[in-house]
Design a protein around this nucleic acid. Structure first.
Length: 171
DNA sequence: CCCTGATTCGC
DNA sequence: GCGAATCAGG
């Protein structure tokens, strides 16, 4: 794939936004993170301050997370029905309410080029990450090559299990 | 192991 | 100019 003006523009923008080389590579498609980094150098774009992994030029940080007050000491309170989360869940709910005006489609993080495969098109090597509402007709699968020992492409594999890893910029 | 960017160097 | 391989680090 060539570095067309458009692709270079996108690269520049995404790099400026603080996306990692691999993420940019994923969005551009057809290139590896090495290619992206190499191109960044050739373009004389400002690198990431300190090299090395994560000290990091975090991308935009929207909200510092409001403190949900603090008064859960009044008394053990009435015997709540045994429930997962309990008070913690309640708190979390408050936070979510205050800072979540955006309508998030629950969609994917930064998995750009979904191939929109139908169920019948899946093979042993295609990412089986479901996209959309199974009840709806536009339901499909990611379809990226997943290697031979995982049901998902590496991006969806990270979302699938192992809550650790990313999640931060994925938000 | 996963990840990150940086550099080198053959093409 | 390109990017895989390699290096260095978290």
């Amino acid at each position: 794939m060539n570095w067309t003006d458009e692709r270079v523009e996108k690269l520049t923008k995404l790099w400026a936004d603080g996306l990692s080389a691999s993420q940019i590579a994923a969005q551009l498609g057809g290139v590896t993170r090495n290619a992206v980094i190499g191109k960044v150098h050739r373009l004389n774009l400002p690198g990431r301050a300190k090299s090395g992994g994560t000290p990091a030029p975090r991308a935009k940080r929207p909200a510092p997370a409001p403190r949900p007050a603090s008064n859960f000491n009044a008394r053990p309170a009435a015997p709540r029905t045994i429930s997962r989360g309990g008070a913690a869940a309640a708190v979390r709910e408050d936070v979510a309410m205050e800072a979540a005006p955006q309508t998030r489609p629950v969609s994917d993080v930064v998995v750009p080029i979904a191939k929109r495969l139908a169920l019948v098109d899946l093979t042993e090597r295609t990412c089986k990450w479901p996209v959309g509402d199974p009840m709806h007709e536009d339901f499909h699968f990611c379809g990226h090559d997943s290697g031979e020992n995982t049901p998902y492409c590496k991006y969806h594999a990270r979302l699938a299990f192992q809550v650790s890893g990313e999640r931060r910029r994925a938000r």
